[in-house]
Amino acid sequence: MTDITGIVGAPPAAAGTSTYTSSNRAATPNQQMDGQMFLNLLVKQLQAQDPSSPMDTNAMIGQMSQLASMEQLTSLNTSSTETFALQMRMAAANLVGKQVTYTDAKGVAQTGLATSVSYAGGVPTVTIGKDTVVALDAVSGVTTTAS
């Protein structure tokens, strides 16, 4: 049986026995599978293998391919999230100077002129008139105002 203590997400090792840390505190379990976890697992497999019967190279290449795929998917996810955030900012900026319809806190549809936007939070906010601030995702309609 392979010992997997010291791998993030595995049961914590006894105090002071971890191969990877020098402190006596237990590692906080990581609920996500990341590249470091896969590398740690691969290193443990290589350390525990029988020298007279080494790991099949095809299996090792398969594991490395899975690691590379996971890294690429993580990168794609990050890029996708950043692209979506940029699209929300552009959409909010395009509202300035237009009549927008939104639902207020009482559930009533309101209409007003979008005068500015803010990117301070996770979702851009639109200022309607002088002092009404609504989240971009609360805007339900947009019309162009006559000049």
Rank of each mutant, 00 (worst) to 15 (best):
P51L: 11
D137I: 05
N94I: 03
L136E: 03
T17Y: 04
A13D: 10
T143N: 14
N24K: 11
D56Y: 02
V96C: 00
A93Y: 06
Q99L: 14
T74D: 13
F84L: 15
D34H: 00
Y119V: 08
N30V: 04
Q31H: 13
Q45M: 15
A138N: 12
M60A: 13
L76N: 12
A27Y: 00
A14F: 07
V117K: 04
Q72K: 09
T81Y: 06
T28C: 01
V126G: 03
T57G: 06
P12V: 01
T103L: 09
S53T: 13
K130T: 12
A135N: 12
A109V: 14
M33N: 06
G16V: 09
D131H: 11
P54T: 10
A13G: 13
A48V: 00
T28N: 04
N30L: 04
G141D: 14
L95I: 12
P29K: 07
T103Y: 05
G97F: 01
K106M: 13
G121P: 01
A26T: 07
G6P: 00
S80I: 10
A85W: 02
T115I: 04
G16P: 09
A138D: 12
N94S: 13
Q36T: 05
S53I: 08
Q110E: 15
D56G: 03
Q32R: 15
M64D: 01
Q36M: 04
V8H: 11
K106Q: 15
L86G: 04
D131M: 13
D56H: 02
Q32G: 12
Y102E: 07
A93K: 10
T57F: 05
Q87R: 11
A114P: 05
A27D: 07
E82M: 14
V100S: 07
S75L: 06
M64F: 06
L113H: 09
T83V: 10
M60R: 15
D137A: 02
S79Q: 10
T125G: 08
A85L: 08
L95W: 09
T145Y: 02
S147R: 12
T115A: 05
S147C: 09
A93L: 12
S18M: 02
V139D: 02
K130R: 10
V126L: 05
V43H: 05
Q110C: 12
S65W: 00
L113C: 05
S65K: 11
L136D: 02
D50F: 07
Q66H: 02
N40D: 15
D50K: 11
M70W: 11
N24R: 11
F38P: 01
L86S: 10
D3H: 08
A13F: 00
G129R: 03
T81K: 14
M88E: 14
K44Q: 13
T125S: 12
I4P: 00
T83F: 09
A91D: 08
T74N: 14
F38Q: 05
Q110D: 10
R89P: 06
L95K: 12
A146Q: 14
P12M: 01
T28K: 08
A27T: 03
T19M: 10
M64V: 12
S75V: 01
K98S: 12
T5N: 11
